[in-house]
């Protein structure tokens, strides 16, 4: 039993140290989750290669219990958005996010996923994946080095540490409706903007 589980207020007799831990539910719940964050095996662009390099022998993602990369969103806890998100791809990214079971986290890796990066002005590029899905940790860089990605993953673990069973959103009563999947029209149609879009069109017709 690692000592990090112990709640500092309780004194454990010396003969039981290392075998017994007195802890809280939150602590053991988060401790179990933080060392088994399974990322999704899902690469978008250049950053995906650095993500694979991180899983390689030199940087060794397995040290953090994250080496089990799952290609199916149904088995993942963490989505690493590794690369440029394009308009053509965003419906799939949102759909994958909706398909992930709770608890789920999103790490936006690289300049493109964080805010468009060098391709921001491109006509097919989304200036940041956070316009569509909620992002927990941003890792800047083009591409971020494996060390930077590891730092971001440690930040995810720290975030997990701070959560409480009572407050986490996946134990709340109201159901999560998911994020509406954007549609590819003449340009990308975000369904959350739909009322506004309709209003604009009708306004224009009125003026005409």
């Amino acid at each position: 039993m690692p000592d990090e589980l112990n709640k500092p207020e309780y004194n454990i007799p010396p003969e039981l140290e290392g075998t017994v831990a007195i802890t809280t539910l939150d602590r053991i719940y988060n401790w179990g989750r933080r060392y088994s964050v399974w990322p999704m095996f899902f690469g978008l662009a250049c950053c995906a290669i650095e993500m694979i390099a991180t899983a390689g022998a030199r940087f060794d993602l397995a040290r953090f219990g994250m080496e089990i990369m799952r290609p199916s969103p149904r088995q993942c806890d963490l989505m690493i958005v590794s690369g440029t998100v394009t308009k053509k791809m965003i419906p799939q990214v949102v759909r994958l996010y909706n398909q992930m079971p709770e608890p789920k986290y999103v790490l936006s890796m690289g300049a493109c996923a964080c805010g468009g990066g060098p391709f921001k002005r491109g006509y097919n590029v989304i200036a940041g994946v956070d316009k569509y899905i909620p992002v927990d940790v941003y890792v800047p860089g083009c591409p971020p080095t494996p060390q930077a990605l590891l730092y971001g993953l440690i930040k995810i673990q720290e975030k997990i540490d701070k959560e409480s069973v009572k407050e986490v959103r996946w134990y709340q009563k109201e159901e999560d409706p998911g994020i509406p999947v954007p549609i590819l029209g003449p340009d990308l149609i975000d369904l959350r903007d739909f009322p506004e879009l309709l209003e604009r069109v009708t306004q224009k017709e009125d003026q005409a």
């Binding site: 440029t84 053509k88 791809m89 002005r121 590029v125």
Partner: peptide, 11 residues
């Protein structure tokens, strides 16, 4: 294809 079309040529 085109899911990673980053408008290289226009940029």
């Amino acid at each position: 294809m085109g899911y990673l079309h980053r408008n290289h040529e226009k940029i």
